[in-house]
């Protein structure tokens, strides 16, 4: 009888622990979002997101972070496009051309997972070495190249996860109708998976916009909106970081407001990609 009670109470004990840890995770997320909003909302104003820094901005005078917002969008947009040109063909190659050669596909997956694990600061350091080698200066272009390297594994792996789920029969019928491998890849597979692929692109875009370590060395920082690829550019994460390290309270408050802007952008991307993957569930040919 006693033993029975012990068994039951042990289970109960662990179930309570489980619920506590689940709740901890939810609370952590809420704490992050709420604390950022509470700290940042009071200093967030319209002029902050529509103006570039004016003279004396970093001493608490007027201006905004438009340079960082636009810079981040340019940088992540460019990097996402470049990465797309490498990732989409590679993901299709793995799932159409090399479908039968499991070893090849698995080795690519292994390498991609390794690359995914490499910290962005290492990409940043590598990008910097490359820049010195090529004689480039800190610029939008150098930033884009570094971030591209950093998001390629993320993009390929998430596209691969989507393409993997396509039933073999679809491929076989495309082949049996006489289409070449690349036609099957781009006209059948791509069309079948387009919502999932958009999700993958958005995911990579979100990563690119949120990363600070890779652009720290390569993109530089400036108060102006870049007009060409060879100019340095500001980015949102770095603008949060730099403003926060200022001793002046007004500037620090603006850092919190910039953090709100960044969080909102990332949340929008996250919700949009969720929407696309929901749609994907509905339209899939099974």
């Amino acid at each position: 009888m006693n033993r029975q009670l012990l068994r039951k109470s042990e289970e109960l004990f662990y179930r309570v622990l489980m619920i506590i840890s689940t709740v901890i995770i939810i609370i952590a997320l809420l704490a992050i979002i709420i604390s950022i909003l509470v700290k940042g909302m009071p200093s967030l104003s319209w002029s902050m997101i529509t103006q570039t820094p004016k003279g004396g901005y970093y001493f608490g005078k007027e201006g905004g972070i438009l340079n960082a917002i636009i810079g981040s969008l340019y940088l992540s947009g460019g990097a996402t496009l470049l990465a797309l040109a490498v990732s989409l063909p590679l993901a299709l190659y793995m799932n159409v051309h090399k479908l039968k050669q499991k070893n090849v596909v698995n080795s690519i997956r292994f390498f991609l997972d390794l690359l995914w694990g490499v910290p962005s600061i290492v990409y940043g350091a590598f990008g910097f070495t490359l820049m010195v080698l090529l004689g480039l200066r800190t610029s939008l272009l150098a930033g884009i190249l570094t971030v591209t390297l950093f998001i390629i594994p993320i993009m390929v792996r998430s596209m691969d996860e989507v393409l993997k789920t396509v039933p073999k029969g679809l491929l076989e019928s495309a082949f049996s109708l006489g289409s070449t491998r690349s036609e099957t890849a781009f006209r059948v597979m791509l069309r079948q998976c387009i919502p999932g692929i958009i999700t993958a692109i958005l995911l990579a875009f979100g990563r690119a916009i949120g990363d600070a370590a890779a652009v720290l060395f390569t993109a530089g920082y400036t108060d102006y909106i870049p007009t060409s690829l060879s100019q340095p550019t500001a980015t949102l994460p770095l603008s949060v970081f730099f403003q926060l390290s200022s001793p002046i309270p007004e500037v620090q408050n603006r850092a919190y407001a910039s953090a709100v802007v960044l969080t909102v952008i990332v949340l929008i991307i996250s919700i949009a990609s969720r929407g696309f993957s929901m749609k994907y569930q509905k339209n899939k040919i099974k």
Binding site: I25, A28, I32, S270
Partner: peptide, 20 residues
């Protein structure tokens, strides 16, 4: 979604939260 959003929050935001 909670897990996905946590995974997607940029590290600088985690840093700001850490400071606050």
């Amino acid at each position: 979604p909670v897990i996905d959003i946590l995974a997607g929050i940029p590290s600088v935001i985690y840093g700001v939260w850490g400071i606050i």
